[in-house]
């Protein structure tokens, strides 16, 4: 078999996952796209392991490790998404904008001379801590 077939398929799958990560709004759909990208990498690892006839089977061992790490990642990621959903009532990542730059330069929440803004910032960090707790 030509090595081009698995290599091209894995590049295409990786770019599909990249599109999904960038274009999706639901956090769980983003996690699915991340899984697609990890699987593309796995296909590449297996193909190159079979091509190079590695005596240590490093490609296949690394593929197994990537699968296990992906399982851990999906567990933690879903737990975080559920915590955010419980705290905010949404899992739409476009609406989670606490770390965004303020639109108005005079309304800087981290300006120490503005006490009301400081209280706002403290509120925001409290909310974030509660949402992830």
């Amino acid at each position: 078999m030509h090595l081009v077939y698995p290599a091209v398929l894995s590049s295409l799958l990786f770019c599909t996952g990249l599109y999904g990560v960038l274009a999706r709004r639901n956090a769980i759909l983003v996690l699915m796209s991340v899984e697609l990208m990890l699987n593309a990498v796995n296909l590449n690892l297996v193909a190159f392991d079979v091509w190079l006839r590695d005596t240590l089977h490093a490609g296949q061992a690394l593929t197994l490790f990537v699968i296990a790490v992906a399982a851990a990642e999906i567990g933690i990621g879903l737990a975080i998404v559920l915590a955010v959903y419980r705290g905010r009532g949404t899992s739409d990542i476009d609406k989670l904008r606490d770390a965004a730059e303020p639109r108005d330069p005079h309304d800087d929440p981290y300006d120490p001379s503005d006490t009301a803004a400081v209280a706002d910032a403290a509120d925001a960090t409290d909310e974030k801590a509660e949402a992830t707790a």
Partner: peptide
């Protein structure tokens, strides 16, 4: 389900797919 920047995402994905392939 899709965010507003899906055209930018499509551009990035197609460009990286073309380069990688």
């Amino acid at each position: 389900a899709d965010s507003g920047n899906r055209w930018a995402a499509l551009t990035v994905a197609l460009a990286s797919a073309a380069a990688l392939v």
